[in-house]
Amino acid sequence: MKALMSLGALIGVAGLLLLGGMVFDVVPSTTIRLVEGYMPIQMLLEVACYVIGFTGLSYIMGAMGMAIPRFWQGIGFWVFLMLYLKFRVYPPIPFSVRAMYGTVGLVTVFMWVSANEEDWNKFKQPIMNVLDAQTGMKRLLRYAYLVAIPILVGGFSFNAMMPKSEEPIELRTVHPAPPASTKVHGKTYTLQTSQNPYRVNPEGKYDQEFSNANIVEQGMGRLMKPNANPWDDKNQGYLKYVREGGEIFFQNCHFCHGDNLNGRGLHAFAFNPIPANFTDPGTIAQLQETFIFWRVAKGGIGLPNEGFPWASVMPPWEQHLTVDEIWKVVLFEYWHTGYYPRTWD
């Protein structure tokens, strides 16, 4: 038990030092990087690590006779959570969202300290002690609180009432519901039944298994399969079209969606909403190929209101590309990210 707790304490101290170091720029702030797409699970893991760490720490401190009162444990953990959310997560979360997490955190801490009568008494003991003020020190503390609390509350409310110009928070639906069908260049495509005409094997047959076998490999770098180079002149079918789609992508799309399809293109810094990151498992990996076809063909202006058609700079590509070119670009995007399009079944 003791060894286990010591290990926990070690994790806690190391984690805290690392976190502090990264926040205060002692060690590079990219020492432990939050990876897009894996961020939620990473954060849960990190917080779990800290919980283990804190448990170990408080156990060791207790064993060494320097036990931290339950009162400060509760408050300390809650403060830690708030600071973690504010300084660790990038891009920053707006205050209103942090306030929500903070409330949930507070309730959790409350449930923890009031789990049984004994714990609850331990928790409220310091408050009662100050209220009763039986020693000189406590009396002093009580007066300090009496003065400080109204001043703090007054100050906060003054701050809250001062007119401020904070950015309004606007929440946008990234994947709005698609229509049943879409008309591009005079032809109607039913989203449920349409297929990418270029997802074909060398014999020219629609063949998702063939294409899935030739996409880039998942894992660092997302490199192409060694024997499936789209720049090989001998290619027929799928890989030939991937290359043609790539050429179109790098003549039209990379300006925003980036050379690695991660939404960090040359012009991306200026736009809001930011261009989609196709390497994020939450974008094209979650969608059917026909959905992408619709989004590409109709662009930002073709979005329903929840998708912010007024702000999106995504071109309606039917103005720039033919239907064939659009299908090829979609094909390339799946190839380059190594994702399979979702199917209807």
Binding site: P150, I151, V153, S157, M162, P163, A270, N272, A311
Partner: peptide
């Protein structure tokens, strides 16, 4: 992208009154 022009309003009187009221309430 879309920016917002925000004309800073002069500070209204309530800003000075209410916090005091609240502080007294707390006392």
């Amino acid at each position: 992208a879309f920016f917002y022009t925000f004309m800073n309003p002069p500070v209204p009187q309530e800003t000075y009154i209410y916090p005091v009221v609240i502080a007294v309430g707390v006392v």
